[in-house]
Design a binder for these strands. Structure first.
Length: 599
RNA sequence: GGGGAUGUAGCUCAAUUGGUUUAGAGUGCCGGCCUGUCACGCCGGAGGUUGCGGGUUCAAGUCCCGUCAUCCUCGCCA
């Protein structure tokens, strides 16, 4: 049986065609307009807003407040020409109420449930249920659902099988800090929440699943950013008997379909490929925003022989002098240039040299570098492809600092000067990442992870110059995902562990289960994972993934709505054999008291 | 762990150089009036630990120190 209050239509459904029908709508009181003898209520639900007309006979003693939940029954009536609301989809009609039932009353909300809200994020998060009730937020959630469904269908359509992997798993070394879960049954032992399903999906390949995917929640106990939450969602996949191009093709097909169906954009396929080495040299970044040019310019050759001692010595010392040409940048004030210098200093550069170019005939330009130009202005302008009215900026430092600093400055300028075309979707595969990077302790660490295949199975020469078969997918300067072809050969895996300084015992202790699996007939395999929060945010034009996560955490990893994390009763800690080292609510004395063994 | 920004009414903000009253405005809320509004209008009203704790001063929303929270960010994030 249908309850008397149950809706026949949603608040966004009624049109002129419904005129004359008796309907029931359910929803929230969005706005009230009391005109004495006539009373208007805008009734809102996820689908839209419908104007309800109430008379005193219908409302009686009922006083309606904002966000009260109503069921309204009555007749759909056409509005006359003067009373139509062209702004609203339901604006041609209104519901003349014959009965109203208050299903639930609401306290006055701490902020209005409107589309354009400028309330502090803190307040929105504290009352997230109200924030999410706003149309744009509901639309974000819906978009997210449609996009994930689209990807699911796309991978299923390509013969992939969705498999769930454990949330309670074991801690693995390297990578991000793990979230730990103490074991009640095994005193002193802990589960870890997965940073990704990496090892499980490789084992699924050994199992013969052949094509796996999963919408996987991942957990990393690291500090947050606008594009980083401690728990996030990946579309994770892995394939057997494949090489890079097979993985790329699977994703290009899936993303092509989803962008067409959900975003309404026809992506040009295939996506361009760019090697890591080229990305770093041209853009100073492994996730270049290729919506605009302004590439880094190598000044090494000129700098080595120039009169500016700082440049000379950096090049002589094995560093780089890199430049960036800001078209029309000569208009920038000294203050604005200083602001650019602050940007590069953030990333470790010591300073930003600059030059406003002019030909030798015109006096050789201006700026602190001008006095070192000495009749080479024409030559420099050629290297820089500069003309009068431009601004050239330079960083001289180690290659990594110079690249990073100017790479970030490039992105900064791209944003500030509006160089990136909005509405363009520059997907890019960045390939051939280095196999290893030098660790702080002087050894090697895996740049991707230790199961990434080297480009050459024999791994000749210097570990630092080895290329791997790891790749990233970049969209408009955001790293959307990464993956690799994995090592399926035991001898190669052993060699990689050796280079990483992980001895046989450690290998067994930490990854024994994977290594054993790899010894039982592992197919060549590789895979990829895309950060869905970022993808959803980007396709909505948002620069913070908070707005596409229903219940996000703050920068200090707290949930302002449910107040997580929280202390737990001593009893619960005892059950899982855990004692806290944190100063207790009783004050810091408690810690030393506990250490003393006194109660 | 470091840097920067912010914190005043439910919400968004103002309050000059430390000194004009009872810390204001808009909006929301409450009450009254109004039969065609849809950002309704008009009249009236309630609403404040200036994040918190110290300090300087005759006097602190304003200056100093500490602390907390939120945002951005460096480090971190295989």
């Amino acid at each position: 049986m249908t309850a008397s209050w149950q809706r026949t239509h949603t608040a966004g459904a009624l049109r002129a065609a419904h005129v004359g029908q008796r309907v029931t709508l359910n929803g929230w009181v969005h706005a009230r307009r009391d005109h004495g003898g006539i009373y208007f209520v805008d009734l809102r639900d996820r689908y839209g807003i419908t104007q309800v007309v109430l008379s005193e006979e219908v409302t009686g003693e009922l006083r309606l407040g904002p966000e009260d939940v109503l069921s309204v029954s009555g007749q759909v009536v056409a509005r006359n020409e003067a009373n139509r609301n062209a702004e609203r989809a339901t604006g041609d009609i209104e519901l003349v109420a014959e009965s109203v039932e208050l299903l639930s009353s609401s306290k006055v909300p701490p902020f209005e449930i409107i589309d354009e809200l400028d309330t502090a994020i803190e307040t929105r998060l504290r009352h997230r249920y109200l924030d999410l009730r706003r149309m744009p937020m509901l639309a974000n959630l819906e978009h997210r659902s449609r996009l994930i469904t689209g990807l699911r269908n796309a991978f299923v359509g390509q013969g992939f099988t969705e498999v769930e992997t454990p949330i309670l798993t074991r801690s693995t070394p390297e990578g991000a800090r793990d979230y730990l879960v103490p074991s009640r049954v095994h005193p002193g032992e802990f589960y870890a929440l997965p940073q990704s399903p990496q090892l499980f999906k490789q084992i699924l390949m050994v199992s013969g699943v052949d094509k796996y995917f999963q919408v996987a929640r991942c957990f990393r106990d690291e500090d947050l950013r606008a594009d980083r939450q401690p728990e996030f969602t990946q579309l994770d996949m892995e394939m057997s008997f494949v090489e890079e191009e097979d993985v790329f093709a699977a994703w290009e097909k899936a993303l092509g379909e989803v962008f067409k169906d959900v975003v309404g954009v026809e992506l040009p396929l295939p996506f361009p490929r760019l090697s890591y080495a080229e990305a770093m040299e041209r853009y100073g970044s492994d996730k270049p925003d290729t919506r605009f040019a302004m590439e880094l310019i190598s000044m090494d050759e000129w700098a080595a022989g120039c009169d500016f001692k700082v440049f000379q010595s950096v090049v002589a010392g094995g560093g780089r002098v890199l430049g960036l040409l800001i078209k029309g940048g000569a208009e920038l004030s000294r203050k604005q240039v200083t602001a650019l210098e602050d940007v590069v200093k953030t990333y470790g550069a010591k300073g930003l040299a600059w030059w406003k170019p002019a030909s030798d005939a015109q006096g050789g330009g201006a700026g602190p570098l001008a006095r070192f130009v000495n009749g080479q202005a024409d030559h420099l302008m050629e290297i820089l492809d500069a003309e009068e009215g431009d601004l050239a900026v330079f960083v001289a430092d180690s290659q990594s600092v110079a690249r990073r600093a100017l790479g970030e400055l490039r992105v900064h300028l791209g944003r500030e000067r509006g160089l990136a075309k909005s509405g363009s979707w520059n997907f890019l595969w960045v390939t051939r990442f280095p196999m290893f990077e030098e660790s702080a302790e002087g050894g090697w660490t895996a740049l991707h992870h230790p199961f990434t295949a080297p480009e050459d199975w024999d791994m000749p020469g210097d570990p630092g110059s080895l290329a791997s078969r790891a790749y990233d997918l970049v969209l408009n300067g955001w790293e959307l995902g990464s993956g690799s072809i994995r090592i399926h050969r035991q001898d190669v895996q052993a060699r990689v562990f050796e280079l990483l300084g992980i001895g046989p015992q450690d290998q067994q202790a930490k990854f024994g289960f994977l290594l054993e699996a790899l010894e039982h007939g592992a197919p060549p395999h590789g895979g990829f994972a895309v950060g869905l929060d970022r993808l959803v945010a980007m396709t909505l034009g948002l620069d913070n993934i908070r707005d596409v996560v229903a219940f996000p955490k703050t920068a200090s990893a707290t949930d302002l709505m449910c107040q997580a994390p929280s202390p737990v009763p001593e009893k619960l800690l005892r059950e899982v054999h855990v004692a806290s080292l944190a100063p207790s609510a009783d004050g810091p004395a408690a810690e030393s008291a506990a250490a003393d063994g006194t109660p």
